[in-house]
Computed example of a mutant assay.
Amino acid sequence: MSGTGQDSDGHGRLGSMLSGLAVAVGCVLFLGGFAWGAVVYRPYTVPTESMTPTVNAGDRVLAQRVDGDEVRRGDVVVFTDRQWGDMPMVKRVVGTGGDKIACCDKDGRLTVNGIPVDEPYLRGSGPASVNDFTAEVPKGQLFLLGDDRTVSLDSRVHLEDGGHGSVPRSAVQARVDAVAWPLGGMIGRPRAFAALPGGVSSAGPLRLQLGAMGVGVLLILGGAVYGPIAARSKRNRRTKAATGAR
């Protein structure tokens, strides 16, 4: 009987230690992932329908804080430029410094340096632009278009103003990685731009941050549940031992 009681107490102490450790590690992962995300990402509300169907007006998106020099073709970016209204806007980068942008080829596609680009993210099945245009992107600049080319006021409009239609890389504040609300999932990097020199941007750390937070929640819940279960199991063993002694 004495040995059984000591084993039971030992198992109980081990269970309590494991439970506490799981909760502690879970808290570190959850809070660490949340803090990391708060530092790297910031939320934005999309103001217009110009990026439909990728993001819609009123959607809350998570955008990674990046320097403009990190931006690549295909990125959906948040930027502010005085010539565009001096307010945060969301558009897609289709050209960088030195690129020659034209639309449309015989198949209705946008071309970058003469290379046609398939854009499955566009709204509708028509040509990549309702109006033909050509542009050369100055060094250190970005050429930006909306995904709904029928309504988007983008670099094409500013070409008509007599300029080059682009904005400086320094105007970029962040790169959009996901639609947070309503839940819309991750925004990937278009494969078509990957074949061009410079490729596309690497994925942001959002998946890793969410994964750490998810594992943290599971460990916290598992540790919290294990404690009462272990205590009940200990009581049951003691009851059985006492009953057997009679």
Rank of each mutant, 00 (worst) to 15 (best):
S2A: 13
Q6N: 15
Q6A: 12
D7C: 13
G12L: 11
G15F: 00
L21K: 01
A22G: 01
V23Q: 02
A24T: 11
V25G: 06
G26I: 04
C27H: 01
V28P: 06
F30L: 10
F30V: 08
W36L: 07
W36H: 01
V39C: 05
V40R: 04
Y41V: 10
T45E: 12
M51I: 03
T52V: 08
N56F: 06
D59Y: 03
Q64V: 08
D69I: 11
D69E: 15
E70H: 00
V71E: 00
R72N: 03
R73I: 05
V77E: 11
D81N: 15
R82V: 09
R82S: 11
G85M: 08
G85C: 09
M87D: 15
K91A: 09
K91L: 15
R92G: 01
V94P: 01
V94C: 05
T96Y: 15
T96G: 14
G97Q: 07
G98D: 06
A102W: 02
C103W: 04
C104E: 15
D105G: 01
K106V: 10
D107W: 14
V112F: 04
G114L: 15
G114T: 14
P116F: 10
V117W: 02
Y121L: 03
Y121G: 01
Y121H: 03
G126N: 06
P127G: 12
F133R: 00
E136S: 13
V137W: 03
K139P: 08
G140M: 12
Q141C: 09
F143C: 03
L144N: 02
G146W: 06
D147N: 10
R149L: 04
T150I: 01
R156L: 00
V157D: 13
S166E: 09
A171C: 11
V172H: 02
D177P: 08
A180K: 01
P182G: 12
P182S: 14
L183Q: 13
G185A: 06
R189H: 13
P190Q: 11
A192C: 10
A192Q: 08
L196E: 00
G198F: 08
G198N: 12
G199Q: 09
S202E: 14
S202Q: 11
G204Q: 04
L206Y: 01
L208M: 11
G211N: 07
A212E: 12
M213W: 04
G214T: 05
L219D: 02
L219C: 02
L219V: 06
I220A: 05
L221N: 06
V225C: 05
G227I: 15
G227Q: 15
I229W: 06
A230S: 03
N236I: 09
R237H: 09
R237K: 08
T239P: 06
A242Q: 08
A242V: 09
T243L: 10
G244N: 13
